[in-house]
Amino acid sequence: MSSRVKVVRARYEKGVLRPLEPLELSEGEEVLVRIERLKEKEKIVEEFYGKRGPAPKELLDEFMLEAEAQ
């Protein structure tokens, strides 16, 4: 994986975080993990949805994830 930051969703199951998409990591590679509850982010998206004109919710979700990666 390049040095670029990537934000991925994960699910916590039986004591383990499982990413919901493939990760380009080497076996044994260490990474930093920041835990943010998705429900908190969804509240923010709902609050701002449509404030600057119509936009699909999926697009707002994508922008939110990209902004967090910066």
Rank of each mutant, 00 (worst) to 15 (best):
M1V: 02
M1Q: 04
M1P: 04
S2N: 15
S2I: 15
S3F: 07
S3W: 07
S3N: 15
R4P: 01
R4W: 02
V5Y: 15
V5W: 15
K6F: 01
K6N: 02
V7P: 02
V8H: 14
V8S: 11
V8A: 03
R9G: 12
R9S: 13
A10C: 10
A10S: 11
A10G: 11
R11T: 07
Y12I: 04
Y12G: 11
Y12R: 13
E13V: 14
E13P: 00
K14I: 03
G15A: 03
G15F: 02
G15P: 02
V16Y: 08
V16T: 04
V16C: 11
V16K: 02
V16G: 05
L17V: 06
L17C: 07
L17T: 05
L17S: 10
L17D: 07
L17F: 15
L17M: 07
R18H: 15
R18L: 12
P19H: 08
P19F: 09
L20M: 12
P22W: 15
P22C: 14
P22I: 06
L23E: 09
L23K: 12
L23Y: 15
L23S: 14
E24I: 05
E24K: 12
E24H: 12
E24F: 06
L25A: 09
L25V: 02
L25I: 05
L25F: 13
S26K: 13
E27Q: 05
E27G: 05
G28L: 01
G28R: 01
G28T: 02
E29G: 05
E29Y: 04
E30V: 05
E30N: 06
E30T: 05
E30A: 09
E30M: 08
V31R: 15
V31Y: 14
V31M: 08
V31S: 07
L32I: 10
R34E: 06
R34V: 06
R34L: 11
I35V: 15
I35C: 13
E36Q: 14
E36P: 01
R37V: 09
R37H: 07
R37N: 11
L38P: 00
L38S: 07
K39A: 08
K39S: 03
K39L: 05
K39M: 04
E40V: 01
E40C: 00
E40F: 10
K41W: 14
K41M: 08
K41I: 08
E42L: 10
K43G: 06
K43F: 06
K43Y: 10
I44S: 02
I44G: 04
I44R: 15
E46N: 06
E46S: 11
E47M: 13
F48E: 01
F48K: 03
F48M: 03
F48T: 01
G50V: 03
G50K: 01
G50W: 00
G50Q: 06
R52L: 00
R52A: 01
G53P: 00
G53E: 00
P54V: 00
P54H: 04
P54A: 03
A55L: 09
A55H: 06
P56R: 04
P56C: 01
P56W: 00
K57A: 14
K57T: 07
K57Y: 14
E58I: 12
L59S: 08
L59V: 12
D61A: 02
E62Y: 10
E62N: 09
E62G: 00
E62A: 13
F63I: 02
F63W: 15
M64A: 05
L65F: 06
E66Q: 04
E66L: 01
E66C: 02
A67E: 12
A67H: 07
E68H: 11
E68F: 11
E68I: 03
A69H: 03
Q70A: 12
